[in-house]
């Protein structure tokens, strides 16, 4: 089962027929496994990884450190769930260290992000404070190297 996920994780467009051949399973089994994994939210989705830096108007990304007062019974979960609902929030993690939540926010401009921080995030009751870091340059994202050589093969076409 894990081998199927690893293949899809590398290339989500790999057709079930090919996965079946690669793993020695039947096409039916591969299809059923994928379907079940989608239902169980093991596979969360399939999407293209777009390098927006190459598109005319790049995107602005910010990492926001958020300090939060944990609440009785629910700890950080309730406030985290609230923050996660904003579509601007790209990813959200509870982390150890100096602050509690790491929020990744994406927007078309600096103003959009500062508007989100000051008018949406900072005013949530449990939020004690925020520190916003704007990203200056992307080097690697989700395993894709964006800047520099991608390390593609330069083999001799024929060798003993």
């Amino acid at each position: 089962m894990e081998d199927i996920f690893r293949i899809l994780e590398k290339d989500a467009r790999t057709p079930p027929e090919r996965i079946a051949q690669m793993t020695g399973r039947s096409v039916e089994e591969v299809r059923a496994t994928i379907k079940k994994a989608e239902e169980d939210r093991i596979i969360l989705g399939y999407r293209a990884k777009v390098n927006w830096d190459k598109v005319a108007q790049g995107r602005i990304l910010a990492l926001i450190e958020v300090r939060v007062t944990p609440q009785r019974e629910v700890g950080f979960d309730a406030v985290a769930a609230r923050i996660a609902r904003y579509p601007e929030v790209h990813s959200l993690y509870l982390i150890s260290g100096d602050y509690d939540l790491a929020v990744q926010v994406e927007g078309d401009s600096i103003y959009e992000i500062s508007d989100f921080v000051s008018n949406k995030l900072a005013i949530i009751d449990a939020v004690q404070g925020t520190v916003t870091h704007f990203l200056l340059k992307r080097f690697k994202e989700d395993g894709f190297i964006i800047q520099g050589e991608d390390g593609s093969s330069k083999r001799l076409p024929i060798a003993p």
Partner: peptide, 17 residues
């Protein structure tokens, strides 16, 4: 070398770096 678009199964080494 003189042909465009060749798929080579004549290689003798890993494709991984």
């Amino acid at each position: 070398a003189a042909t465009e678009g060749v798929i080579s199964l004549g290689v003798g080494e890993p494709d991984f770096v």
